[in-house]
Amino acid sequence: MTITTFDAFSRLSINDISRISKFLHEYSGEFTDTKSAIQKSIMYAAKEVPGLGGYVFIMEKKQEILGAIVVNRTGMNEYLAENILVYMAVKTEYRGRGIAQKLIEHTIKYCDGDIAIHVNKDNPVIELFEKQGFKARNIEMRLVR
């Protein structure tokens, strides 16, 4: 199993963007966004749309995606994290095998600056992030229009 890193310099093809967004949508569980929203975050990370870019990390075995993370750069520091971990998923049958932990560790090593994540308060993945050193700091309140 290898972790592949994509950013503005190691471009994602349209097929890769589609494949990764489909994977994240399918395996993110009940706490996921639309496939379109996921695709936009990947395109932002790959600098296919204007913005600061970010990173897409995927763990594969024989060209089968086992896990994936999307990180978007915010351009902020001190008052907001420089990076936001937007999406993470592990294929159902591979959960509990350390894939999410390895992806998070890779993300922490690869990204410069603070990393934030918005997690639904009922999502059991919170414990995994706490083990990696993440701390609950704020509550997001959002006005949806």
Rank of each mutant, 00 (worst) to 15 (best):
Y44A: 13
D33Y: 07
L52M: 02
Y110M: 14
R142Q: 10
Y110N: 14
I3F: 03
H118A: 08
Q101P: 03
I104G: 12
I14Q: 14
L143Y: 08
Y87Q: 11
F31Y: 02
Y87D: 11
I139L: 15
S36N: 13
E48R: 09
V49G: 00
N123H: 00
M76W: 15
R73V: 14
S41C: 06
V71G: 04
I115R: 08
E78G: 09
E93D: 10
A89C: 06
I3V: 11
D122M: 11
R142N: 05
S41P: 01
A46K: 00
A116L: 10
R19V: 00
L128C: 12
I84W: 11
E60P: 00
K47D: 06
I58C: 01
R73E: 15
S41G: 05
L66G: 04
N77K: 14
H106P: 05
K102E: 15
K131Q: 06
A81L: 09
Y44M: 06
E78V: 15
N77C: 15
M76P: 07
Y27E: 13
G29T: 02
A100W: 06
D114A: 14
F129C: 12
R11H: 11
G96K: 00
G98M: 04
R97C: 11
V119P: 05
L66Q: 10
A81P: 10
Y79L: 15
L143R: 09
E26H: 05
A100V: 13
I126L: 12
G96I: 04
I42R: 00
A81E: 10
F6H: 11
E78T: 15
F129P: 13
T92N: 09
L24S: 00
F9K: 09
L52P: 01
E78F: 15
T5S: 02
T34Q: 02
Y110R: 09
K91A: 05
E127M: 09
I84T: 12
F57Y: 08
G53T: 03
S41Y: 03
A45V: 03
E64G: 11
A46Y: 00
L85W: 03
M59S: 14
F6I: 12
L128F: 00
G113N: 07
G98S: 03
M141A: 05
T4V: 13
I17W: 00
V90H: 02
R145K: 09
D7R: 04
K61Q: 13
Y94H: 11
L80R: 13
I42W: 02
R73A: 15
R11P: 10
S28E: 06
L103G: 11
E93R: 11
